[in-house]
Amino acid sequence: MNAQEDFVAALLDPERACPAQLTAWNGSDPAVRFAVYRNNVLSSLIDALAASFPVVQQLLGEEFFRAMAAVYARHSPPRTRILADYGADLPAFIEAFAPASSLPYLADVARLERLRIRAYHAADAAPLAADALTKALASPDRLASLLLRLHPSFGLLESAFAVVSLWAAHQGALTLAEVDPYQAQCALVLRNGLEVEVFGIRPGDALFLQTLQQGLPLGHAAQRALALDSAFDLGTCLAHLLRAGAITHCAYDPQRPLP
């Protein structure tokens, strides 16, 4: 291990001694100064995680969250300089973190919060004008080959838990007493301007959007959605997507011949 690797390893491991190569310009004890620096680095990483996962912190309580975040930070240091990217694998860590096992929905709440961060930093794209889609829908014989492109901020989460309601409760839209966390929900995450929004959607809508996201045409997506959910309504779903600015482009699939 070279000096730089030794420094990094010691920085995140309180059991390691101060690197032997360190000296202080004013003659003070390098070990004392390094301990202060180590604490500041760890505290900064925990603060970054708390800023990215506020609902997870509220569900756990600040003391528990910071203790868990310290364990995570020591084993998973940042891999880039962009702290907004830090914590991408925290949901998986939470799933395996035994002290948090009494809250089985916690990892999916963390996944929802990660989707919100990704959406906030996603590229901009102008939403499709309503009349452009109306024009395309005016040719029903070609709907099967219509391709829709979704906004770069679009994110989808299917959960066995009430992640949308749990998130909403911590925004003041509901009370926790109203939420049954063990009700499955699908979440659509989308940025509208600078505001990231979270919508609860039906399973059929979620499958429809997943299929579009895979680059498959509207007709195929609608068939899959209806097979899963007989209450799926294509018109209602498309209207909601247009209002939310979720569609940015539409075109007919060149691989499918005209009828």
Rank of each mutant, 00 (worst) to 15 (best):
L103M: 15
P104W: 11
P104E: 03
Y105D: 13
L106H: 06
L106F: 03
D108H: 00
D108V: 01
V109H: 13
A110W: 09
A110Y: 11
L112V: 13
R114S: 03
L115S: 04
L115H: 12
I117K: 01
A119H: 00
Y120I: 03
H121K: 05
A122P: 08
A122K: 08
A123D: 03
A123F: 05
A125E: 05
A126L: 14
P127K: 06
L128K: 06
T134D: 15
T134C: 09
K135E: 15
A136L: 03
A136C: 14
L137T: 01
L137G: 02
S139L: 12
D141S: 13
L143W: 08
A144H: 05
S145P: 05
L147C: 10
L147M: 12
R149Y: 07
R149K: 15
R149G: 13
L150P: 03
P152A: 04
S153D: 08
F154G: 00
F154E: 00
G155H: 11
G155Q: 09
L157I: 01
A160W: 10
A160H: 12
F161C: 04
A162H: 08
A162S: 09
V163L: 01
V164M: 13
L166F: 15
W167H: 15
W167D: 11
A168F: 10
A169K: 00
Q171I: 02
G172N: 00
L174S: 05
L174K: 14
T175W: 13
T175K: 12
L176R: 09
L176M: 14
V179R: 10
D180W: 08
Y182E: 13
Y182I: 01
Y182G: 06
Q183L: 10
Q183M: 08
Q183Y: 07
A184H: 10
A187M: 12
A187K: 03
L188Y: 11
R191H: 08
G193K: 01
G193M: 11
E195T: 14
V196N: 03
V196F: 02
E197V: 09
E197T: 05
V198D: 10
R202T: 14
P203T: 00
P203M: 11
G204Q: 00
D205A: 15
L207N: 08
L207T: 12
F208P: 09
F208D: 07
Q210A: 14
Q210E: 15
Q210I: 04
T211K: 04
G215P: 02
L216C: 09
L216E: 09
L218D: 05
L218E: 05
G219W: 07
G219K: 04
H220L: 14
H220I: 13
A221L: 12
A222R: 10
Q223S: 14
L226H: 08
A227N: 13
L228F: 15
L228Y: 14
S230Y: 10
A231Y: 10
L234H: 02
L234F: 07
G235H: 13
G235C: 02
T236C: 14
C237V: 04
L238F: 02
L241C: 12
